[in-house]
């Protein structure tokens, strides 16, 4: 397949996402309007009277009929305008731009950690079924899934911060003593390294470690399980038996033929876990005061902050689309059998 061909396919896929995105915009618009509560009353403040509530409703454009509100929302969207979050007082775009990198840094690092543990664990468990490694794998997986993240978070905090004092104070991405590095990638650790400031990088990394382990314990479970299950299935395949019979080295059979075939469902799981963790790590964010996108969305939802909720949903939708695309591309790289159909 030539490069230009592949590019065309990518573009086509992006185009196909447009109707889906439109649907999401429409649904999120309608759903936010269906939320109980009147944002105008809420934001008019504690002593507001009828008149000032009416003024605010007009300011917010909530006195106009729904279809009109929707069209002006679409118009704003096309200009790249996501509106103003009323609860935080910032443009939604600014909020997302500052919070998404925080969430991404945490989630990606957590995934990296859980991959480092889950893959070897899954492989060991699959190659030695019913051994102690397999049982360990089972225990870890069950614990990871069944322990709620806020509980693991608080437990880790209690042990490593409160009792032992090894972890830095859980006050967000960076201790107040440091200045955030100039934004390049959005990850404080990487940006600080790029800026040649190892000390800030170390501080940022220290802040990142506990929340990432908390989230990692949670995401580890599906990955380890999927690795184990997929690998066991593949290892039972006839081509593996053939390879073994042909006298290929055990290592070569396992890694080149076994794992490479088993990795596809693992990648799919990884994609799902990633997008899920990104939006769902609200509790981890709360415990560690991590300024991420999840807590922003939940707070916006609680106060019926329409623009913020819609912005969050749209942002997540776009991320999902891109992520799915990325996974499809990775598929074609990993597995020559998978071809994109035009």
């Amino acid at each position: 397949m030539r490069v230009s061909n592949k590019l065309k396919l990518v573009l086509l896929r992006l185009l196909q996402a447009v109707p889906a995105l439109f649907g999401i915009v429409l649904v999120s618009f309608l759903l936010t309007r269906a939320l109980p509560g009147d944002p105008a009353v809420y934001f008019a403040g504690p002593m507001a009277d009828e008149q000032s509530i009416a003024e605010i409703r007009q300011q917010m454009g909530l006195d106009r009929p729904l279809p009109l509100q929707f069209f002006s929302y679409i118009g704003d969207l096309l200009q790249g305008e996501l509106g103003q979050s009323i609860s935080t007082g910032q443009p939604v775009l600014t909020e997302l731009a500052s919070r998404l990198p925080a969430s991404l840094e945490l989630t990606l690092f957590a995934l990296l950690l859980s991959l480092l543990v889950a893959l070897p664990l899954g492989i060991l468990a699959a190659t030695r079924p019913n051994s102690w490694v397999d049982h360990l794998c089972r225990v870890v997986v069950t614990a990871g899934v069944s322990l709620p993240t806020f509980f693991t978070g608080l437990l880790l905090l209690y042990i490593f911060y409160f009792l032992l004092g090894w972890a830095p104070s859980p006050m967000g991405r960076l201790d107040f003593a440091y200045l955030p590095p100039e934004t390049v990638t959005g990850s404080f650790v990487i940006d600080a390294l790029l800026a040649g400031d190892p000390e800030t990088a170390r501080a940022a990394f220290a802040q990142l470690l506990l929340p990432a382990i908390t989230l990692g314990l949670f995401t580890l479970a599906p990955i380890a399980r999927m690795t184990r299950a997929a690998l066991i299935q593949v290892l039972e395949g006839e081509f593996i038996r053939t390879a073994r019979a042909a006298g290929l080295a055990r290592r070569k059979v396992l890694y080149r033929y076994g794992l490479r075939n088993a990795i596809l469902p693992v990648i799919t799981t990884l994609g799902m876990v990633f997008s899920f963790a990104l939006g769902a790590n609200v509790l981890v964010e709360k415990v560690f005061a991590w300024p991420g996108i999840g807590s922003f969305a939940v707070e916006a939802l609680v106060v019926s902050d329409y623009a913020a909720v819609q912005g969050f949903v749209l942002c997540m939708a776009v991320l999902f689309v891109l992520l799915n695309l990325l996974i499809d591309v990775i598929y074609t790289l990993v597995d020559p059998r998978v071809r994109m159909e035009s």
């Binding site: 608080l154 905090l157 209690y158 006050m171 709360k286 005061a289 807590s295």
Partner: peptide
């Protein structure tokens, strides 16, 4: 420095 820390447990530990 005013730090915003949503979790009461975290605030208490700090």
């Amino acid at each position: 420095v005013i730090r915003e820390l949503p979790s009461t447990s975290t605030r208490r530990a700090l």
